[in-house]
């Protein structure tokens, strides 16, 4: 579960690394929650900052066997984002569905 914006901290990058690594051992899905959806905005150009644009790496998730990336409709709306603004196709769920989604998995890793 990714809950933070990119660039402001290394949590997002660390979280993505954990997903790529964890996908070798278990069936994983990703929930981009709250500010976490900011990580998926297209066209991040980090040449003017000391951070790295790792959003393109989300495109590799399918090759790692991570088939589903979830986003919450309300999180997108509150941030004036639509699915076309994002670098990869996502599965959009309602906020009310998050609780049962979290219940579907044995372990939750938070970043």
């Amino acid at each position: 579960m990714q809950s933070r914006a990119p660039h402001g901290s290394l949590f997002g990058q660390e979280g993505l690394d954990a997903i790529l690594m964890g996908s070798a051992f278990a069936t994983c899905a990703v929930l981009m929650h709250g500010d976490g959806v900011y990580q998926l905005i297209r066209d991040q150009r980090s040449s003017g900052t000391s951070t790295r644009d790792y959003s393109v790496s989300y495109g590799a998730l399918g090759d790692y066997g991570v088939e589903t990336v979830f986003c919450v409709q309300e999180d997108l709306t509150e941030r004036r984002l639509v699915v076309d603004d994002l670098v990869i196709p996502v599965t959009v769920i309602d906020r009310a569905a998050v609780a049962s989604l979290l219940n579907d998995y044995n372990t939750i890793l938070d970043f």
Binding site: L20, A24, R52, D53, Y54, V56, S57, G59, A60, D63, Y64
Partner: peptide, 18 residues
Amino acid sequence: EYYDDYQVSPPTRVLAKL
């Protein structure tokens, strides 16, 4: 090319698939 697209080096199982 894969790295150029996704900025990740493919590990064993991804390399085999690729």
